[in-house]
């Protein structure tokens, strides 16, 4: 099985691969969600995973930090295979920030407490340090004035920005975004994408499952197109959006009304 690979050089990271997926297989009962996925994520890159719903992109993201265990192949993070051992896996997970489609802020904590929770409980930093980080991260996502608000008092876009701040407070090496704007009102999508774009410009390594083709094209360094558990094509956005080499990619983009 060969995947059409781009011959274009990867612009960033100097060849340093942060995440390597090799022949990743994931099954849910008799359903094969991932059927041999090969993909590299280089340091400082924004890799966008696109494709129809149920094609396996979110599953790959969830396998990356071990929320789902894989049934075949392997995933390397910073040169080491994802461990089976819970304790080691947790330490690795703490270096990957994750942002969910449905935000999943902790509703019993204020924005500030949400962001401070990870450093406090997982990294065992002092309360002062956790609060310092929380304040800094909330400011970074433009929500310094919402620190004392509970999630229920924030808009969807604001909640998702707090969720990004919560992940950043762990000072991760890579950020995983699972359809971060799919649950948002159209008018708040932009504020979240802007925060993500700013992060990308700072050099954060990001893996983004998204239906926002404009974001994938403008901000993505590398785009992988998924279909039925496989990557049907991957390459720089210019290739994927302007000169797709497979029928399946053209098909998918045309269904989205993408005219190239």
């Amino acid at each position: 099985m060969t995947t059409p690979q781009s011959t274009a050089p990867r612009a960033k990271g100097g060849g340093l691969k942060i995440i390597r997926y090799r022949g990743v297989i994931k099954r849910f009962g008799s359903f094969t969600a991932l059927n041999g996925v090969d993909l590299d994520v280089h340091a400082g890159e924004v890799v966008c995973l696109i494709g129809p719903s149920g094609s396996g992109k979110s599953t790959l993201l969830r396998c990356t930090n071990g929320l789902e265990t894989i049934d075949g192949g392997d995933i390397e993070f910073e040169g080491a295979l994802l461990p089976r051992d819970e304790r080691v896996l947790r330490a690795m997970r703490a270096r990957m920030g994750m942002v969910f489609q449905s935000f999943e802020l902790f509703p019993h904590l204020t924005a500030q407490q949400n962001v401070a929770e990870g450093p406090r409980t997982v990294q065992k930093v002092s309360l002062a340090e956790a609060n310092r980080r929380a304040t800094a991260m909330l400011a970074k996502v433009g929500l310094a004035d919402k620190a004392v608000n509970y999630p229920s008092a924030l808009s969807g876009g604001q909640q998702q920005r707090v969720a990004i701040a919560r992940a950043l407070a762990m000072e991760p090496d890579v950020m995983l975004f699972d359809e971060p704007t799919s649950a948002l009102d159209p008018e708040t999508i932009g504020e979240v994408l802007n925060v993500m774009k700013a992060l990308a410009e700072e050099g954060m390594t990001m893996v983004v499952v998204t239906h926002e083709m404009t974001f994938a094209r403008r901000v993505g360094d590398w785009v992988a197109v998924f279909d039925t558990g496989r990557i049907v094509e991957q390459g720089p956005p210019s290739q994927i959006f302007d000169a797709p080499t497979t029928e399946r990619t053209r098909d998918f983009l045309s269904h989205l009304g993408w005219s190239g």
Partner: peptide, 15 residues
């Protein structure tokens, strides 16, 4: 999703 969000931060199940 709440457990997953906690675990994604690196928390154990008990935490």
């Amino acid at each position: 999703g709440q457990v997953e969000a906690a675990m994604a931060l690196g928390m154990s199940r008990a935490q």
